[in-house]
């Protein structure tokens, strides 16, 4: 129940942020639209722990800055590879295990791997991801499991 109210509140805040006009008529229209969208989401079964994971909001406060730092570091190494005249790529395919328990946590891990430049999740089967890495070091880092542990910690911070 609290999930539906939180979704309605977020949608209404999104309306207010995008509109910028605060006449009574438009604000009422926004509230009606937010409630209608929540009913549509319930009917589409999109307002479940996977579609609107309010449990993860607290962990997200520290997770996203860490992820941006990680993206900057690996983005810089990919930049050096692209600008190197000899183009020293060594594409590697590997399989890594995901230790997350919920679907939202696994999706977070797979998307974090893809978002980091230099590694792409190309397939999922069970709790194993197939990963394509631009250079060998990227595959080695993922097999070390540092990001896996960080995402599990983010998932468990609920």
């Amino acid at each position: 129940m609290i999930r539906y109210f939180s979704l309605a509140g977020l949608l209404f805040a999104f309306w207010l942020a995008l509109s910028g006009h605060y006449t009574p008529m438009l604000v009422t229209a926004g509230a009606v639209c937010a409630v209608a969208c929540v009913f549509a989401a319930i009917r589409m079964r999109a307002a479940d722990p996977e579609g609107h994971p309010i449990e993860l909001f607290r962990g997200a406060i520290t997770y996203f800055p860490w992820l941006f730092l990680e993206i900057t570091k690996s983005g810089w190494s990919v930049t050096k590879v692209i600008l190197d005249p000899s183009l020293p790529i060594s594409p590697t395919m590997t399989v890594v295990r995901a230790s997350q328990k919920t679907p939202a946590g696994m999706a977070t891990y797979a998307n974090s791997i893809t978002l980091t430049p230099g590694t792409i999740t190309v397939g999922v089967s069970g709790d194993e991801f197939t990963v394509h890495a631009l250079v060998r070091d990227g595959a080695d880092d993922l097999e070390g499991g540092g990001m896996d542990r960080r995402v599990s910690q983010f998932e468990g911070a609920a």
Binding site: P91, T92, M93
Partner: peptide, 23 residues
């Protein structure tokens, strides 16, 4: 087929027959 310098798929685990999981 991706151009690969090293392929570590199926080194430790049994191979799956579904081509869409990347194995």
């Amino acid at each position: 087929k991706p151009l690969l310098a090293e392929d570590r798929r199926g080194m430790t685990r049994p191979r799956s027959t579904d081509p869409d999981d990347g194995r």
